[in-house]
């Protein structure tokens, strides 16, 4: 299969197309964050680094960063707003209510 590209491929004719709907590129170009009405924000003072939000994020647009807390290795969730659609699963699932929301203004 051809190399993947990060820009959307527009086929000029069927000669360039595969015979079936198969992705030849990543979906990186499709910035689904623009769909978001409500922005989730993680309150790191409350966050226990349990990573439940990361597990539940369906997009997935929560990335984990390795950090050290009290000499222990932890994973800090960071929301990728380029792709987060604001579906609400993370703030619903968070066991310590560490994710609050704000209306998107633009």
């Amino acid at each position: 299969m051809p190399k993947k590209s990060e820009v959307k491929i527009i086929f000029e004719s069927i000669k360039d197309m595969p015979p079936l709907a198969v992705s030849l590129y990543t979906m990186d170009y499709n910035k689904t964050g623009s769909w978001r009405n409500v922005r989730p924000i993680i309150d790191y003072d409350k966050c226990t680094y349990c990573t439940i939000c990361w597990k539940f994020c369906p997009e997935p647009s929560i990335d984990l960063e390795k950090i050290e807390v009290d000499g222990k290795e932890k994973f800090k969730p960071i929301i990728n707003y380029k792709y987060c659609k604001g579906c609400g699963i993370c703030w619903t699932e968070c066991p310590v209510d560490a994710i609050y929301t704000e209306e998107e203004s633009e």
Binding site: M1, I10, F11, S13, I14, M17, P18, P19, L20, A21, V22, S23, L24, M27
Partner: peptide
């Protein structure tokens, strides 16, 4: 074109009016 974990692709994904007709 087949499912191959070493070369991942999405199959049958959302295709708009720019591609569906040709398929």
């Amino acid at each position: 074109y087949k499912i191959d974990p070493d070369d991942p692709h999405a199959f049958g994904g959302l295709t708009g009016p720019d591609g569906y007709f040709e398929l």
